[in-house]
Amino acid sequence: MKNLKNLIIEKTRKIITEKGVDCPTITLNSEFLNDLPMDSLDLATLIVSLEISTGLDPFRDGFKTFHTVDELINLYTEANS
């Protein structure tokens, strides 16, 4: 499977640029809803898009809280293990 970190950052950037806004530098500590120009629908699109690409669904057992890129990577890494 493609590196999860790169995949998540790449898909996040794609969603932001498709909105027609400049994408800031995305770091592991970037908070999706606070530091990046994303709303909850964008974040939902990212989750669905990752599920389609990876077949992984870390939220199968219910809602899990995450804020940063790193926290989301960890959720997918755990789901993949």
């Binding site: 909850s40 629908l41 974040l43 939902a44 699109t45 989750i47 669905v48 599920e51 939220f59 219910g62 809602f63 899990k64």
Partner: peptide, 12 residues
């Protein structure tokens, strides 16, 4: 509609 844990669903 595709379900997701944040907004219930998104339109596809």
């Amino acid at each position: 509609a595709k379900s997701n844990p944040i907004t219930n669903a998104i339109v596809c």
